[in-house]
Write a protein that binds this DNA or RNA. Structure first.
Length: 194
DNA sequence: ACCGTGATCCGT
DNA sequence: CGGATCACGGTA
């Protein structure tokens, strides 16, 4: 199966997010080849999207998001979990799609949980070494999967971005409705002002 | 509900 | 420099 080309990613984040559902995320490292089917994603649209890290502007961390499409954007959060994104859209646009859950396909212990952005990075072996890596490389790429019909796609607000005001309510989280490997809904109330 | 854990960013 | 914050997950 042929890798998704870098041009696949060079489109608005929401389009890429939609088309990422059902694709196969391949991580091939020293510890072997691991593959997961993408079943849940979130689109982060760019600098104007207040939930997007790029809304902080061009910083050392967000630089990769402003670069060419088809790179990995991996960051550490809460000091212990990694999150894996694909950089999308035109160069100069700070957009990306967060992969929030996959289904185990290959190289994973049966029954191992692959839902949740931090967990999927842990089980696939994704870490900061993958940050900025091209998504057409042997060690890290995506493959086309069986097409996911529109009726199977569910949409809702993104998780954990309550700080983003009106942007938090936008239905930019997409998942395969019947997957069974979609992350548990974690609702964080906006922190109450003291 | 609560907290671990460290990078990142911003204000001083 | 300090301190707040964080696109989370495990335990309670």
């Amino acid at each position: 199966m042929r890798k998704l080309p870098l041009t696949f990613y060079a489109r608005p984040a929401l389009e890429v997010a939609r088309d990422l559902l059902g694709t196969l995320l391949v991580v091939d490292g020293v510890s072997g080849r691991r593959v997961g089917r993408v079943v849940e994603v979130e689109a982060y649209l760019g600098e104007h999207d207040l939930a997007c890290h790029a809304s902080k502007g061009l910083t050392p961390r967000t630089e990769v998001m402003f670069g060419p499409a088809g790179r990995a954007y991996v960051y550490l959060i809460y000091g212990m979990h990694h999150c894996f994104n694909v950089v999308t859209d035109a160069e100069g646009v700070g957009a990306a799609v967060l992969v929030r859950a996959v289904e185990p396909v290959e190289g994973l212990s049966p029954g191992e949980r692959t839902d949740g952005p931090g967990r999927l990075c842990r089980v696939l072996g994704l870490n900061l070494n993958h940050n900025r890596q091209r998504l057409d490389s042997e060690g890290l790429h995506l493959l086309p999967g069986a097409p996911v019909p529109e009726a199977a796609v569910a949409r809702g607000p993104r998780i954990g971005v309550e700080y983003a005001g009106a942007w938090a309510a936008e239905p930019f989280r997409l998942w395969i409705r019947d997957s069974g490997h979609v992350s548990r809904f974690v609702s964080r109330a906006p922190r109450r002002r003291p």
